[in-house]
Amino acid sequence: MTESAIAAPRTAGASAVVVRPRRRRHVEWTVWMAFVVVLAALATAILGDAIAPYPYSSVSLTQRLLPPMILAGGSGAHVLGTDALGRDLLSRLIVGLRVSLLAGFGGVLVAAALGTTVGLLSGYFRGWVENVLMMVADVKLALPGILLAIGVIAVLGSSSGVLVVVIGLGIWVGFARVVRSVVIRVRNEEFVMAARSIGAGDRDIIVRHLLPNCVTPIIVLATLEVPTAITLEASLSFLGIGIQPPTPSLGNMIADGRGYLDLNPWQTLVPALGLIILTLSVSRIGDWLTTILDPASETGTIH
């Protein structure tokens, strides 16, 4: 059922790509911007506490709900303003960024590892292995990432480890499908038969010959899925079942600000805009990678 459902838009998307004559590639300025934003975010996240002007949980009751510096009432001491407890928003944004990136990249790593394994096994062995694994994938599709996460967190509670795994479980199916389709395409090629004829075992063929062929689509899909993972983390933290206070994440900062939208919208806007700029930049890079590395296939992201 869902098998055909997923396959249809993929092939359709693929044939919709216009093949243009190859010329020297012109990289759009938006892509450069995106790279600058992502590298800056990574650097900020790695440096974290070292560059944050205040400790992220340092409370100041006289400095509550300040707007950003450039607005009336703001002060140079708190560049992006403060929240309802007088905590510096810039410092919290810096630390929250680290949490979001960790969850985003960590979750995608888990998803890629799991999905690639499933894809390799089902594409290589076909038969009942494929049927069982693809049935598991269908079952996963019936439970959207958020709901699956709700189920797991209801049982195990929330910690960053659980969160990363849950995000990975939420988005692995795309990797499994893409890797499987690549493996099915190349498994009967001559280099695989050659490897088999000189006595290579299943594991050798899968790891040394099939896996390398999947690397490009995996990288493309991973880049496209990072925004999904970051969004998932932010959503869960926003719901109060992700990263727990006092540790800031972009999601729980937005949730914190909800009650003060009329007093100081910036407490919400700062993390919200940060989140949008981050996901927009990563997905811009993902789209760009898709067009240069994988022009023939539209790696659709459906969950």
């Binding site: 969004t231 806007l269 919200a272 996901t279 997905s283 789209d287």
Partner: peptide, 21 residues
């Protein structure tokens, strides 16, 4: 494309901010 990168709850908060607050 921009909408695809904006989480739903963030859009919802923008709506609250402009239409309600």
């Amino acid at each position: 494309v921009s909408a695809r990168a904006t989480p739903g709850f963030v859009f919802g908060i923008f709506l609250i901010l402009f239409l309600a607050v």
